[in-house]
Simulated scan of single mutants.
Amino acid sequence: MRVSIVDYGVGAALAGELANTSPTVRSAEGEALPDSEALARFLVGHGLRFDALADGPPTGHDVREVHLLRREARGIVETETEEQAVAGAAVLAGRAGLSPVLDRDAGGRWQWYVPTAPGASLAEELAALIGIGLLGAVRTLGHGRFRACVAPGCRGVFVDTSRGGRRIYCMPELCGNRLNVANHRARHRLGGGVTQ
């Protein structure tokens, strides 16, 4: 696998999305990655292809390793300082990441990539992708973009890679909608249900 240094957003966003698959965050739905089939769907849903899966789908062992990585990714997003985030992300990037290389992209332009070590496990390759993404996010956007969801009762985290940097929900389509519905219902209760 080759991880793009320039396209850090993929790995940075993945850190939060992976952390939010935990039953701690998804208390009503439960574990989002209970087995190898769910992990495979998660990876395909994010358009991710790993060298470690060249010989077949994820295994139960891969699921356990990814669950451990999920905790580490969450811990890095929740760090208090940039230094802590950089230190944690560097550890992840070093799991399978080798020395950066300059290579041409599909359009023929020179780009920086970090290849992963031959024989690296799925979790190690995923760690490298997340680690490099988090390092890029700190450098480009700053640690202030590492956030907790503001929706009441949500324990989700995310890295805001949006252009404006005003994202406040870990899953806007879910947490944002829940809060909007709750606010709408509260307004109608206060107003007696009358619309003007």
Rank of each mutant, 00 (worst) to 15 (best):
Asp105Val: 02
Ala38Pro: 11
Ala28Cys: 01
Ala96Val: 03
Ala96Met: 07
Leu134His: 05
Gly119Tyr: 10
Val66Ser: 11
Leu129His: 07
Val91Lys: 14
Ala52Pro: 00
Ser22Pro: 07
Leu53Arg: 12
Val25Tyr: 04
Asp62Lys: 08
Glu37Asp: 14
Ile76Gly: 02
Ala38Phe: 08
Leu43His: 04
Glu124Pro: 01
Gly119Trp: 10
Leu14Val: 12
Tyr113Lys: 11
Asp51Cys: 01
Ala13Pro: 01
Val114Thr: 07
Ala93Asn: 08
Leu33Val: 02
Leu48Glu: 01
Ala106Thr: 06
His61Tyr: 03
Arg64Cys: 00
Ala13Tyr: 05
Ala87Cys: 00
Phe50Met: 05
Ala117His: 10
Val91Ile: 15
Leu68Cys: 02
Asp62Cys: 07
Gly60Ile: 11
Asp103Met: 07
Val44Lys: 13
Ser22Asn: 15
Val101Ile: 15
Val66Tyr: 10
Leu53Met: 09
Leu98Trp: 01
Gly47Asp: 06
Gly56Phe: 05
His61Trp: 01
Leu135His: 02
Gly94Asp: 14
Ala73Gln: 00
Phe50Asp: 00
Glu72Phe: 08
Thr116Val: 07
Ala128Ile: 04
Ala96Arg: 09
Arg49Asn: 01
Ala15Pro: 06
Ala19Gly: 10
Gly133Lys: 03
Gly11Arg: 13
Gly16Trp: 11
Leu129Ala: 10
Arg109Ser: 14
Leu122Val: 06
Tyr113Val: 10
Asp103Cys: 00
Gly16Gln: 07
Leu33Arg: 07
His67Asp: 04
Ser99Gly: 06
Glu125Cys: 01
Glu72Leu: 14
Pro115Ser: 10
Gly45Val: 02
His67Trp: 11
Val44His: 04
Glu31Met: 14
Gly108Val: 08
Pro57Cys: 08
Val86Thr: 09
His46Arg: 15
Leu18Glu: 10
Arg71Val: 02
Gln111Cys: 07
Thr21Gln: 15
Ile76Asp: 00
Ile76Val: 15
Ser99Asn: 09
Pro34Cys: 07
Arg64Pro: 00
Ala19Asn: 07
Leu135Phe: 05
Gly94Lys: 13
Leu43Ala: 09
Ala19Phe: 09
Ala19Ile: 05
Gly88His: 02
Arg104Ser: 02
Thr59Glu: 13
Asn20Ala: 03
Gly133Gln: 05
Gly107Met: 08
Ala15Ile: 15
Phe50Thr: 00
Pro34Asp: 04
His46Pro: 02
Ala128Pro: 06
Ala32Cys: 03
Pro115Val: 03
Gly119Asp: 12
Ala85Glu: 02
Gly88Glu: 06
Asp105Glu: 05
Glu17Val: 06
Glu83Leu: 06
Gly30Leu: 13
Val77Arg: 11
Ala106Glu: 15
Ala128Gly: 11
Gly16Ile: 10
Arg109Val: 04
Pro58Phe: 12
Gly136Trp: 08
Val44Asp: 12
Pro118Thr: 00
